[in-house]
Design a binder for these strands. Sequence first.
DNA 1: CTATCTGCAAACGTTTTGCATCTGT
DNA 2: ACAGATGCAAAACGTTTGCAGATAG
Lengths: 131, 131
Amino acid sequence: MPVQKYRSLQIKLTPQRLAILSYLNGNKTHPSAEDIYKAVQKQYPTMSFATVYNTLEALRDKGNIRELKIDPAKKRYDPDNTPHHHLICVKCNCIVDIHEDFDLNLPGKLTRGFDLIGKSIEFYGICRKCK
Amino acid sequence: MPVQKYRSLQIKLTPQRLAILSYLNGNKTHPSAEDIYKAVQKQYPTMSFATVYNTLEALRDKGNIRELKIDPAKKRYDPDNTPHHHLICVKCNCIVDIHEDFDLNLPGKLTRGFDLIGKSIEFYGICRKCK
DNA sequence: CTATCTGCAAACGTTTTGCATCTGT
DNA sequence: ACAGATGCAAAACGTTTGCAGATAG
């Protein structure tokens, strides 16, 4: 287990957290808290949701994962830090990453006094399975 | 009350629904179900959340309002039917409309077999009040 | 007249919290 | 040693549901 890799996160590395990090590492499925809980529970049957949420919150605050607001029923998490967008199926809610830079800028006169931080583009459609 | 205006919705126009429609009409605040409930409750103190949700669902299905997935804590509703995007404050979650057409297209080779339906762009920042 | 809507309360799924115990650093 | 994490259960929160009675069309 590449513990070193996670030292930079500056959070206590417990076995449960390492299991969560390992599950998230390279994961392209945009899992919910429950997905993560179920996966890690196989290895640590006494795991609690509190620990999952606690860890996800810490990782989010450290900028290590992104909290997606795409699914109205539950939060989903994206461990891919590189800038990218999403293509979402309106039927099954599956999410596919779009790694493409769209060179899109909000004209200065439309910023309404906001300090801009970033942008996010979602494309909606029906996936191959659902049609 | 311009009842005629709403006949095209093809839903039963009860007094409660007219109050909701009147609250939504021209509303730029992107209210939550609770915001709507509180507002209409002043006029109809016996109103229930079931009626609010029931009406919002009907309006959404008729294409009259959009359900926003911007706020992870609760659904918010947008009565503006014209195509537009949003600028969101990451601190107070306030939402401002951006009426600008960005001429953005997903290249065919990136559609991953999806039938495309639409797109949505969110800009994030900190609003004037919050800085 | 009757299909649909209302209001209430109970149920639901997700997320948060309090707290005693434990553990990484 | 101690700040901070864990596990458990209970609570909170927004939303949905079942149903009896009311009402728009």
